[in-house]
């Protein structure tokens, strides 16, 4: 695919693509109360923080554009695009808010309907389709790149709640690399239980910000203070840096996150067990896996 022909951004106009995690399992887990993040910050409250944030992004610059994409467990979809609003409609904050909520409702219905047909959701998959929504966001960005010589500076903000789905590793990494290639930073704000290795890597590779706010009821403040700044201003600001990045990979064969594994010498595919043949590029590995101690063993016996 050809990359963008030119990169003549107007430097203080942003296009922010926000990925909203609408994972029913995660948000419903807060219903019982307790220590779960969804209990301190139920979905309704979460939206209370996010929607004003979207509005404030639009306030910062008249030309700013915001796109909201919802990430479900069966599908992903565009929820809101400030560029689509009619000339008179998009000004009103409450209208934007109700539009978002309405479309979100439709999205959740659709997500549920798709899930009914298949066994996937019932099989126990609880992770959201981050790879899908990242791809949607990147497609949107590419469309904007092609719209003309002057376009807003794009960036992606992931509001992630549910844990990573290791089975999406390859797809997510591919999305991350294409974001890196088209110079789109991926910011991540994790409101879930654990850190997200995917998003740590995504933000690290693309030069975005990764933050897991400790104080969830102040989410809006985090969003406004850290993630609202446009790319130009970031050069002059001291923004939070992660202490470390979890670089672990998932294996291609069983989609498990692994510390140590086998790597195809031809295409660098990762496997947790020794394979006779690389499933990606078809290279054959003739030699049986050397038991780690066999070499020293033979030396000793000799």
């Amino acid at each position: 695919m050809a990359s963008a022909p030119s990169k003549l951004y107007s430097d203080d106009v942003s296009l922010v693509v926000v990925l909203l995690d609408a994972n029913p399992f995660f948000w419903a887990a807060g219903a019982g109360g307790g220590n779960h993040p969804a209990a301190t910050l139920p979905f309704a409250k979460f939206l209370d923080h996010v929607i004003p944030f979207l509005n404030s992004l639009l306030l910062m610059n008249q030309l700013n554009q915001v796109v909201l994409i919802a990430t479900g467990i069966n599908t992903c979809g565009y929820i809101y695009d400030s560029g689509n609003g009619g000339p008179e409609g998009s000004d009103n904050v409450s209208e934007i808010s109700s539009e978002i909520l309405l479309r979100l409702e439709e999205f959740v219905c659709k997500d549920r309907k798709i899930g009914k047909g298949t066994e996937r959701a019932m099989g126990g998959s609880v992770s959201s389709l981050l790879s899908g929504s990242l791809s949607l966001a990147l497609c949107y960005v590419q469309k904007v790149f092609r719209s003309g010589a002057i376009h807003p500076q794009p960036r992606i903000l992931c509001l992630q709640a549910s844990p990573d789905g290791p089975e999406q590793y390859v797809a997510v990494m591919n999305a991350i690399f294409s974001a890196q290639r088209s110079m789109v930073p991926i910011d991540s704000c994790v409101v879930g239980v654990q850190h997200s290795a995917f998003l740590q890597q995504a933000s690290y590779i693309t030069g975005g910000i990764y933050l897991k706010p400790p104080q969830l009821d102040g989410l809006f403040q985090y969003l406004a203070a850290v993630f609202a700044t446009d790319l130009q201003s970031r050069n002059f600001l001291q923004l939070p840096k992660p202490a470390g990045v979890d670089f672990r990979a998932s294996c291609f064969c069983h989609k498990k996150t692994i510390d140590m594994g086998y790597v195809c010498s031809v295409c660098l595919s990762i496997f947790c067990q020794h394979q006779r043949k690389c499933s990606t590029c078809g290279s054959e590995f003739n030699q049986a896996p050397r038991e780690p101690n066999s070499a020293s063993d033979t030396i000793r016996k000799a």
Binding site: A22, P24, F25, W27, A28, A31, P42, F43, A44, L47, L101, L104, E105, V108, C109, D111, R112, G115, A121, M122
Partner: peptide, 12 residues
Amino acid sequence: LEESYAYLMKQI
């Protein structure tokens, strides 16, 4: 699953 979706809708 069903209950979860219902809860999410209620929240919205």
